[in-house]
Design a protein around this nucleic acid. Structure first.
Lengths: 258, 258
DNA sequence: GCAAAAGTGTTTCAAGTACACCCATGG
DNA sequence: CCATGGGTGTACTTGAAACACTTTTGC
């Protein structure tokens, strides 16, 4: 959505194509180089940072909408993407929005009863990606994007800090019950790499020996015969996920701690 | 909503008071006499069983709406009530509904574009109650109610079997991480009572000695000096929940299995 | 040979699981 | 005294946690 015509049509006629009153907010966790980050977009006019989000098409399945919205921004499909909560309690989520702001800030003429300004609940989804593989797209409403460290998320628009906090909490809870890493690591990776990934997501240290025992005992990863050459140090072995065990664990859940 | 005037107004003008496109479905688990049941309503016209549900008022916080809808049916307030998933993927949740059916079945005249017939996502909530304390209310659309054993839920309207299945799954998962029982048991109860409650919810046997050790070690319940007189058998001791520990565990979660 | 990172095993402790007998009560 | 249900303790097994030294590599 880049041209003025497209945007005007979206604002004026969007309610014919999208469901009003419900939006999707995606919390996109990106991992790379031992850092866990979140994708934020800088909104024009509003002059603040917010989550990539969007609306559900009138005949579009919910999860398809979440994937489409994610793909529009990141060009990535087939990701692990999960709904975690509907936000509809905070003061912002109860009141109507203000069309005057919109007119001033975007220079678009809108009616008082435009669909965008009615009360809108938001369904939170989160996804995990390797952010070095992501090329982010901005549009008419957004002028910039940035990956922010999860520990340094700025004040966000609306109630979106709450959304991010809840997503992070859910992710950390989930890591105890489901395998994570398939979308975040290259197809072959080393033990130190996946070890650091888990430490980064959980925000705490994990004993390296116990950690590798755990993953190996669960049968989630298997050692290959190759090693990776990493400069002046001992070459680490490469591993890869055991696809079947991994999928199984995703479905059935794991009962354990790390 | 009982009189014809009220109903007609709801159908015609409901969209002015409620948010269209989103509804709430409550899965109300009721426990009593060693049985875990679910509250279902029999719909007039549609001639099938379904969940008690409703719409969100335009300025009403989401969780308040869920509580209101629950209270309208059960007269119970302040219950443990939790959202667990938004349903928006199944074929029923994608297509529009059919106003012809409605006219035929309820004898109400409605326009093609009436708000009730647009596509509607549903937010699933579940609650836990002692069903002997519940007096259920029906209305214009519902002619009967019944508590159904969770293992004998009939074919439900729309996609609601999926909703019930997911609620039960969530409840069973949750019982491993949160204390349950405060809303389901009298203020004082015996060990066999809470033991059976957990067995019933999980649908499997739990060793009685290990179970009581667990709850006591976690500090969730405390033994009183009284006993309950239960006919021709040894009188069991009464217990009650440790309010502080219980609330703490609700907030923080428990890491354990049973 | 040295700096930097990888790899590897054992012990300890806590928690979960399995298991069976005696006790109390009312009829 | 007997039928029914309540109450209690111990041994075993499993998994989590703590912990340090040797190996490899390129410079």
């Amino acid at each position: 959505m880049n041209s003025l015509e497209e945007v005007t049509d979206f604002v004026k006629n969007g309610h014919k194509h999208y469901l009003p009153h419900i939006s999707i907010d995606n919390v996109i966790f990106g991992y790379h180089d031992q850092q866990l980050k979140i994708l934020l977009l800088k909104w024009k006019g509003l002059n603040g940072w917010g989550l990539p989000g969007g609306f559900i098409k009138r005949r579009e399945p919910l999860s398809e909408a979440a994937h489409r919205i994610l793909e529009e921004r990141t060009s990535l499909s087939n990701l692990f993407l999960q709904q975690f909560e509907v936000f509809g309690d905070s003061p912002y989520r109860v009141k109507e929005r203000n069309p005057k702001d919109f007119r001033d800030k975007f220079g678009l003429e809108v009616d008082e009863d435009n669909w965008l300004f009615e009360r809108t609940l938001s369904i939170g989804f989160f996804a995990l990606v390797d952010y070095s593989k992501v090329s982010v797209t901005t549009d008419f409403f957004t002028e910039d994007y940035q990956w922010w460290d999860v520990n340094e998320v700025p004040d966000l628009l609306f109630d979106q800090n709450e959304v991010v906090d809840k997503a992070l909490l859910t992710l950390r809870l989930q890591i105890y019950h489901q395998p994570i890493g398939y979308n975040l690591l290259p197809s072959t990776f080393t033990l130190p790499e996946i070890h650091t990934l888990y430490e980064t997501i959980l925000g705490k240290e994990l004993d390296q020996r116990n950690f590798s025992k755990k993953l190996t005992n669960l049968g989630l990863i298997k050692k290959l015969d190759e090693r990776r050459n990493i400069g002046p140090h001992r070459a680490p072995y490469l591993y890869q996920f055991e696809k079947e065990t991994y999928e199984e664990a995703l479905k059935e859940g794991i009962v354990h701690t790390y």
